Computed example of a mutant assay.
Amino acid sequence: MGSVDIWAFRTGSGHVSGSDLVGFKVEATDGHIGKVDRLSEEVGANYLVVDTGPWIFGKHVLLPAGTVARVDFEGEVVHVDRTKEEIKDGPEFDPHKHDADDGYREKYAGYYGPFYAGPMY
């Protein structure tokens, strides 16, 4: 299968570079988890920050772009290939550390990377 990049949007996801996903609903494989609060399209570090609202007590979670299975622009929904529990159990998001520390990103790659299924849809 070769190496995969959890920090890049899948070719078949429907994501168009430069498109604004902020405000889109985010759906896990088993239900709604929140809305996109922030989107990074930095080369080699694409990700979404999701505001989970009351679902996880107002917590924000970071999802590498490779977790995005499909983007529905018409319905303004981002579908990710993780369960609510997998997302809830992911690394704690700290915006100050994330932007300044590559090692911080490695925690996400270590958590989400092994489950990365590669391009799909």
Rank of each mutant, 00 (worst) to 15 (best):
M1Y: 09
M1N: 05
M1Q: 05
M1W: 08
G2W: 06
S3W: 03
S3A: 06
V4A: 09
V4P: 00
V4Q: 13
I6C: 12
W7M: 08
W7H: 09
A8Q: 14
F9E: 04
F9D: 02
F9C: 04
R10N: 15
T11Q: 15
G12N: 14
G14L: 03
G14Y: 02
H15G: 00
H15W: 11
V16E: 13
S17I: 02
G18W: 06
G18A: 08
D20A: 10
L21E: 04
V22N: 07
G23L: 07
G23H: 03
G23R: 03
G23W: 08
F24G: 01
K25M: 10
V26K: 08
V26G: 04
V26Y: 06
E27V: 00
A28H: 08
A28M: 07
A28K: 06
D30C: 06
D30F: 08
G31N: 06
G31T: 03
G34S: 09
G34P: 13
G34E: 09
K35F: 11
K35E: 14
V36A: 09
D37C: 01
S40W: 03
S40E: 13
S40L: 01
E41R: 04
E41V: 12
E42K: 14
E42Q: 13
V43P: 04
A45Y: 07
A45Q: 12
N46P: 00
N46G: 07
N46S: 14
Y47M: 01
V49I: 15
V50P: 12
D51S: 15
G53P: 04
W55K: 15
W55V: 11
I56H: 09
F57L: 12
F57G: 13
F57Y: 11
G58N: 14
H60A: 06
L62E: 10
L63V: 12
P64Y: 10
A65D: 01
G66S: 03
G66W: 04
G66D: 03
T67M: 14
T67G: 09
A69R: 15
A69V: 06
V71L: 05
V71P: 08
D72A: 10
E74C: 02
E74P: 01
G75M: 05
V78D: 05
V80P: 01
D81L: 08
K84T: 12
K84S: 07
K84D: 00
E85L: 11
E86M: 13
E86D: 12
E86H: 06
I87E: 07
D89K: 15
D89F: 01
G90T: 02
G90P: 04
P91W: 07
E92P: 00
E92I: 13
E92W: 03
E92D: 14
D94A: 02
D94N: 15
H96N: 13
K97H: 09
K97M: 10
H98K: 01
D101R: 07
G103L: 12
G103R: 11
Y104C: 02
Y104I: 02
Y104H: 10
R105G: 02
R105M: 05
E106F: 04
K107P: 00
K107S: 12
Y108T: 01
Y108P: 04
Y108K: 09
Y108R: 05
A109V: 02
A109M: 08
A109G: 14
G110Q: 14
Y111E: 03
Y111K: 03
Y111T: 05
Y111A: 01
Y112R: 02
G113C: 06
P114E: 05
F115R: 14
G118W: 07
P119E: 12
P119Q: 05
M120D: 09
M120C: 03
M120R: 13
M120E: 14
Y121R: 13
